[in-house]
Nucleic acid binder design. Structure first.
Lengths: 334, 334
DNA sequence: CTGAAAGCGCTTACAG
DNA sequence: CTGAAAGCGCTTACAG
């Protein structure tokens, strides 16, 4: 009854049953020929005595760790933690089904030392990159080291296995809807052009204009990074341009835009409409509720993890997986 | 130059230098007697050839993993992800200084299977519990298994090493300030009495009344869990009671209360003051800005991690560490 | 100061 | 169908 004493090993089991360690190992793994009766005897004993294989030792012998590295953005000012969080849930849930655990690592722009250590120490069998860059040290490092990895979000690097939402198509759809609702003058506010996803969103935005045959006023594009600091100034500028709608690339921006509008006592949606290319809980409690795109973060995590595990096991995997999205129309664009 | 080929091992180094593996091992670890010159020769070779010890093998030999398990709340409706997130940063940063990595695990109420697997598989040397309960399966399990662990947040269980902010004292101070500002009728809105921290906050609240010699109107306590679902009803009730101030236990509540007030066109702070026992980015963009307590999540993580590592190394550790806080007065209580 | 050898707890050709 | 033995890459008494 006292199983906290000393951990029981495969050798103990072998001794107790009068068989070899080999046999015990085979009974557990199911690999190699073994008598049905013998296997059952081993399994029964194991079950009764709460034997648990030492995954570390198993890993050493097989050169496997049963750990997956998840690289999170390590910057403080991150767009939407909730999204990564939920995605992480998905990864974890999927990993568990195959006995993998999650080793968490943070990476900051220009600092991938944390990831490097994990790889160099061979503590994981593969990695999931949660954020990608147009120029991506992480991708370069992992490719060089020949470590299996996938990305959530798209990567411009050749051969990278990527799982992403169809941002371009989603943004195109939302923009089209705005245009069809007769909002011709739409200001697009964004930031961080270094992220791949920013480019996709912008492309989708342009796509919609092209498809509708409406000329796009480039003066209504506010993509410079100073937006972050001087968002009030940006909003001022926008309002002077007599726009119908302010479209924000992500909710970090949306939140700040809404704040400025509130301070200026500008009513949404009466005075100006607002929508976001990205839906987070951050906006949930807003009055009015905000029109946005919805992406299923958990699904993203699960698919990414599944793909990585397949990759590790040498199975065939899709080079690029695009997940669906939803357009959620709310009060802010009424 | 081609270090992606085959990983170089301690044996390779020994061969190349014509010494024994023992010697190499000692040069690296710094343990045991070894000639100064020999050590330097080994170190130089290692450095030049990018030798990296296999942490897994090292772990096997020492029965160590150099992994720390961090148990995150795995529920979807979690109060403030940002806080846990930042705390995780702190943990990670501290762990790195000693060569530890973070194995992440989620635990839901009544489901600690994920934690169990990690422990039973001996994949970590210790664990950090990020959320504690009055009745805590995790604590019971870890104690039984004799695994070193610490908690961020307090635990009522005997002998548990805990690192926490001084919530009781903080809430007392904030409440006192409100009382001194002549807000006599303060409604306290909370939820989830199962968390230890809820109890601490409530105690601090009561402390302030006692100290000021003011009788507390128990009718102004709204701690039942239905608040979550019927927050609008709760706010209605509160407003009918003619209160000066609504004090929210955490920001999940605060956010929803503010939303209801906004919908009812009730002005903060003119019609009613609002403050929160907890400060999150969620409220950052609110107009008006919200008075609240500030807790340094990163520091919490760092101290917790430091403590755990000391515990693992058999050093003496404090049984309970209380971290300081700040009261941040803003517009909502003007 | 240095080394041969056993050991950490598994897996897996190779024999039988 | 089963087992003895070598091996995964380290550490660490024990000798010298």
């Amino acid at each position: 009854m006292n199983n906290t004493e000393k951990n029981i090993t495969i050798a103990d089991v072998a001794d107790a049953l009068g068989v070899s360690k080999t046999t015990v190992s085979r009974a557990i793994s199911g690999k190699g020929r073994i008598g049905k009766e013998t296997r059952e005897r081993v399994l029964a004993y194991i079950d009764e005595h709460d034997y648990m294989p030492n995954v570390i030792a198993k890993g050493l012998a097989q050169s496997k760790t049963y750990n997956l590295c998840v690289v999170m953005p390590g910057d403080y000012e991150v767009v939407d933690w909730n999204f990564f969080q939920t995605c992480l849930f998905g990864i974890q849930e999927m990993a568990q089904t195959e006995g993998y655990d999650i080793l968490l690592t943070m990476s900051r722009i220009n600092d991938i030392s944390s990831l490097e250590r994990v790889i160099v120490n061979r503590k994981v069998d593969g990695v999931i990159l949660m954020r990608t860059f147009l120029e991506d040290e992480q991708v370069e490092f992992l490719t060089k080291k020949k470590i299996p990895f996938v990305t959530t979000g798209s990567s411009p690097y050749e051969g990278v296995i990527q799982i992403d939402h169809n941002h371009r198509s989603a943004c195109k759809e939302l923009t089209s809807i705005m245009l069809m609702k007769n909002m011709k003058r739409i200001a697009l506010v964004g930031e961080d052009e270094g992220y791949v996803v920013t480019q996709s969103r912008l492309r989708g935005f342009r796509d919609a204009y092209v498809q509708m045959g409406i000329p796009l006023d480039e003066k209504l594009l506010f993509l410079n990074p100073e937006n972050r600091i001087r968002i009030d100034k940006t909003v001022d500028e926008i309002l002077q341009k007599n726009v119908d709608c302010i479209l924000c690339m992500d909710d970090a921006v949306t939140g700040r835009v809404l704040k400025v509008l509130r301070e200026k006592h500008i009513n949404v949606p009466k005075d100006v409409r607002v929508a976001s290319f990205y839906d987070s809980t951050m906006l949930e409690d807003n009055v009015p509720s905000i029109t946005s795109l919805y992406f299923n973060a958990k699904e993203l995590g699960m698919v990414a993890c599944r793909t990585l595990m397949n990759l590790i096991e040498g199975k065939e995997v899709e080079q690029r997986t695009l997940l669906p999205y939803n357009v959620v129309l709310k009060e802010s664009t009424k």
